[in-house]
Write a protein that binds this DNA or RNA. Structure first.
Lengths: 218, 218
DNA sequence: GTTAATTTTAATCAAATGATTAAATAAGTT
DNA sequence: AACTTATTTAATCATTTGATTAAAATTAAC
């Protein structure tokens, strides 16, 4: 109904940034508005003054985070001037940098996707654009029809690429615990994966899948 | 201090099973004791009567679920009579069956691991046994030293296997939405992966990694 | 400088929630 | 049956928590 602030807006931005940190690390239910007030160092009532309600503030944060997770490499995958494998290399490179900067993002988004899948369509506006419209999808189809890469269902391919890229961040506390690594060492392993994952994907895509009936002998 | 029930114990079991369903689907903070009472169809006070507190009940469920997730294939991976690749085939086969029966398990465990990593050691009793003690670890070392498989850091290997197996269940609502599949079709894809993942892992392990300096040409 | 609008604060409210209690019912023991 | 023990129920408590309010402080407008 009305625009409220008229100067710097630092309070509003402080609250939002604090809310992002707290919501993404603890989730909606475990976060109290008092946590956000404390984290941002502002009076409790200002949260409702600037954002109306906890739920409204959460939705703002959630939409931004989901879009960051889902759309941060769309441009790369839609570039008509690069090959399929080059696209993968560049996208994985950028994505791993983004995940090192936002390690809590995947588990937050996965929770949102599992607990409120309807929000993807309602609030984030999914379902409009189709993944199959990206240029990389056309390239995949062409290369498959030409027999240049193995005929694997794209869901398997997407699952594998995203899994190998994202999962180590979701399971980081577990994998780090088991391997006795420091955060720094673990991040260096993630940087190694910038080169390794594209290589593994290329390997998978160019090595014949064994016949269901006669298992391969290696 | 005292043993409480003396006959069938169905009420206690009902509460526990209802708590497992509610806790694993909504998490600790979003679950109200009234949700568990309603889900199990018992009086609210019986939850505290049988389990003392919400937190105590949660810990019981949590430990069981984490152990199911982490230890359900340990026996297979420690079998001295099978080859490394056979172990992987059998373990992945069993694991995917387990995940189809418990699709909410991975996201629940990953949340616990991210939010309360100290509980892994304190309550589940991690840190005692070492993953490197399993028979499959010895086999990996032998094959690597013999040059039969690529010298890849075991963390990469474990990450890839677990990622390709588990991640499609964590991201199921997202991947299913994007591909327009039914739950049944999606599960069939997961069953396909029983054969595909071992094949991909074998491919990765037996295809030379390109030198860092001179990139491979395929 | 006075007035009006905006922002901040401290106090408070109402609803939700984990837990307890005392009484009632059921089951087991002698 | 009489008595003890275990289980279940409805009511209630004390805290927590999201939100509101009225007053104070700050900033902008004239």
């Amino acid at each position: 109904m009305a625009a409220k602030k008229q100067h710097n807006g630092s309070t509003e931005a402080q609250i939002k940034e604090a809310a992002r940190r707290v919501f993404t690390s603890k989730g909606f239910a475990a976060t109290r508005t008092r946590d956000i007030a404390e984290e941002s160092g502002v009076n409790l009532a200002l949260i409702n003054y600037y954002f109306r309600s906890k739920e409204n503030l959460y939705n703002i944060i959630m939409v931004e985070q989901v879009q960051l997770f889902l759309h941060s490499v769309t441009g790369i995958l839609n570039d008509p001037t690069t090959t399929l494998f080059t696209k993968l290399e560049i996208a994985i490179d950028h994505y791993i940098d983004m995940l090192i900067a936002n390690p809590g993002l995947p588990i937050f988004v996965m929770n949102e996707v599992n607990n409120n899948p309807e929000n993807l369509v309602d609030k984030v506006g999914f379902g409009n654009h189709n993944a199959g419209d990206l240029f990389i999808a056309k390239q995949w189809l062409e290369m498959t029809m030409a027999g240049e890469i193995q005929p694997i269902h794209p869901l398997h391919l997407i699952s594998n690429v995203v899994a190998m890229t994202v999962f180590p961040f979701i399971a980081a506390p577990l994998l780090r615990n088991r391997s006795g690594m420091s955060v720094k060492e673990y991040n260096e392993m993630m940087l190694q994966r910038k080169k390794l994952i594209p290589h593994w994907v290329k390997t998978i895509l160019t090595t014949p899948v064994p016949e269901p009936n006669k298992p391969d002998r290696s």
